[in-house]
Design a protein around this nucleic acid. Structure first.
Lengths: 363, 363
DNA sequence: AAGATATGCTTAATCGATTAATAATAAAAA
DNA sequence: TTTTTATTATTAATCGATTAAGCATATCTT
């Protein structure tokens, strides 16, 4: 008899506040009077059945009575799979990323995966911390919005054969899975719109990082100018630091507006920049589109209340996020699959925020 | 020798695409030539040291060389703790909840916890699914924005001694940990503001659920009317269903505006309702505050662009979320601690959206 | 020098599952 | 009747850690 040992091991006697312990295969086995293995075969294999029908029924019955729920931690340890994916975004409280997170969550849930998330704040070291943290928790794969300088982290995943999909941004220096939009093309279209509506001196407010999506948006901007015979003025492009969005945007706008030849229009490279920028323009009493034309990236409740319907780049967030999850999980299931690279097309939604000297918005 | 067994177990030979395997205590033990236990003592206990200094140094050195990262899954199985908390919100893509999520994430990270999140969509069955899912993954505790009808789920946690903290909303029928705001009081203040600024016929748009926070907001509204000698008209209170926010809000506003005696003001019970409502008022060309006075709950980028600075209820999100995490983790550490119930004070931020027939906003 | 205490490391059980290998029994085939 | 095959359940290893208990040596006591 092991009564003493049992009563020590069993917390119920010791701590009165412990009511129910989770039931394990062991509990069921003891109750039914069979081995743990038999119970496992019945409950995991279902009908495969090297077990007699009566025994099988009995075990299932007891399992239900004891409200058995398998311990996923134990399963994970054995299988090496956690059915969990790590999602690293820049900031979960930014609507753009929150939206992505929601879609990822739903799509993952459909495929029976859980999501663990973390915000990198655009900082490589924070991102490193998250990746290590999640690796130790044995997530099966990652969906990552990479920050600047996160190349070695990605290499780390590569070295450890951990599947991952980059989203929103890609790292051109390596061949990864990614799902992004064609930033160059849609930026081109956005700026073309500004030109078509009669603007000639077009400023851009972007982030100062060297990430490819930002480069592409800038290159689209510059090519649009060039192809339409507008020679780019270096002072038109304002690079804002992540850490000082507000100050950066304000300084940039001040510069753009107060030069000898003020600009006609501004192209904002992200929603955050646009929100700050539009707030500041409001403060300066600069009116859209009368005093200045605007095109920005992404939508959001925020813009719904803006007095002037904005012309903006609408990203296919749903497709992007769903694709990312699907690609990731397919590669978790079969790591030998080739890398997938998707560049989706974004849409320019025409509002009323562009109208230069030459003509009004044709909407 | 176990060469054959080893080469079978080791995937490197089998699948060429597998490059590095995570190093385990076993690998270090083999490399150094000691038992796994010794390695474990050195790496987990640090300086406690029943192990000689030289051996200890050697083990640490090899551990670093092999880039050892402990397997948290294995640790969890042994310890019964995952250092993970489950966060269940209504919808992570709603800025209100995304904001909470971000603060929870940061606070949890400080205390060395990971966050797994899920969106319930205000549906009890979805919430049930999430709770079971996360229970099976052995999260150490929950932070929950409870949906209507989720009482049995909470009971389930209670039965299984799983610590949890309700946030934003509480369930009055049971004694749980919770962190909420004093909804009655701040709703009272909000409506009082409408009355003080000269409004008499004051409508409210709320959700149709029976959750306590909603009841409290409604009771605050009614008491404010009553205490100021305004007799409440049943048709002033519009209850909107979660599933049909847009339609509900529009129908409600139509009713409020088109009766024989149209209302002067609307009190919106949440940010989502306010966003929909204000959009619709815009569409109807009803101007704030000239045609109608408004007070709403919560802030957000959205309202920053609204043409009229809104008077709104500002919830102490940071305190609320941080408190929730702290309470939860303290109870994970010591389940015998008494339940904690916090009702924080919210602030009414005065904008320019209230001005009735009697007087203008005194701002 | 005999027994007592320290020191330093190993053995083995454990967490809760999975699963290959095997044993025991019954039924079918020779 | 003996051998083969099916059926049904068990044993034991495993995943990667932790940790109580045990076993050698070495060092102190007196």
């Amino acid at each position: 008899m092991q009564v003493a040992a049992n009563s020590t091991a069993n917390p119920i006697g010791k701590y009165s506040f412990m009511k129910k312990k989770k039931t394990s295969l062991k509990d069921i086995a003891k109750e039914v009077g069979v081995s743990i293995a038999t119970v496992s075969y019945v409950l995991s294999k279902g009908a495969n059945s090297r077990v007699s029908v009566e025994m099988s029924e009995k075990i299932k019955k007891v399992a239900k009575e004891l409200n058995y729920q398998p311990n996923q931690i134990a399963k994970s340890l054995k299988s090496g799979k956690t059915h969990t994916i790590g999602l690293i975004v820049a900031d979960i409280s930014n609507p753009f990323f929150a939206h992505i997170a929601r879609i990822v969550e739903d799509e993952a849930a459909k495929l029976d995966y859980t999501v663990i998330f973390g915000s990198s704040d655009e900082k490589a070291d924070k991102s490193w911390g998250l990746i290590k943290f999640l690796m130790n928790r044995q997530v099966d794969g990652f969906i990552i919005v990479p920050s600047e300088g996160s190349n070695d982290q990605i290499q780390y995943l590569e070295d450890h054969n951990k599947p991952y999909v980059l989203i929103d941004r890609r790292l051109p220096e390596r061949e990864s899975n990614y799902v992004v939009i064609d930033n160059h093309e849609v930026a081109y279209q956005a700026v073309k719109r500004l030109i078509d509506t009669g603007n000639e001196r077009i400023g851009m407010i972007a982030y100062s990082n060297g990430l490819q999506h930002m480069r592409d948006r800038v290159s689209g901007y510059r090519m649009a100018l060039q192809n339409h015979g507008i020679s780019f003025d270096n002072s038109w492009l304002k690079a804002v630091n992540f850490d000082q969005v507000k100050e950066g945007v304000r300084a940039g706008i001040d510069d753009l507006l107060n030069g000898p030849k003020p600009i006609d229009a501004i192209f904002f490279a992200t929603n955050t920049l646009a929100v700050e920028g539009l707030k500041y323009l409001d403060k300066l009493n600069v009116r859209v589109p009368d005093d200045i034309s605007i095109v920005c990236f992404d939508q959001g409740d925020a813009f719904d209340f803006y007095y002037c319907p904005l012309t903006y780049v609408k990203q296919p967030l749903v497709t992007m996020s769903e694709e990312a999850v699907r690609i990731l999980i397919s590669q978790i299931d079969d790591p030998s699959l080739p890398k997938v690279q998707k560049s989706l097309q974004a849409e320019l939604v025409i509002g009323k925020s562009c109208s230069g000297r030459l003509m009004a918005d044709k909407n």
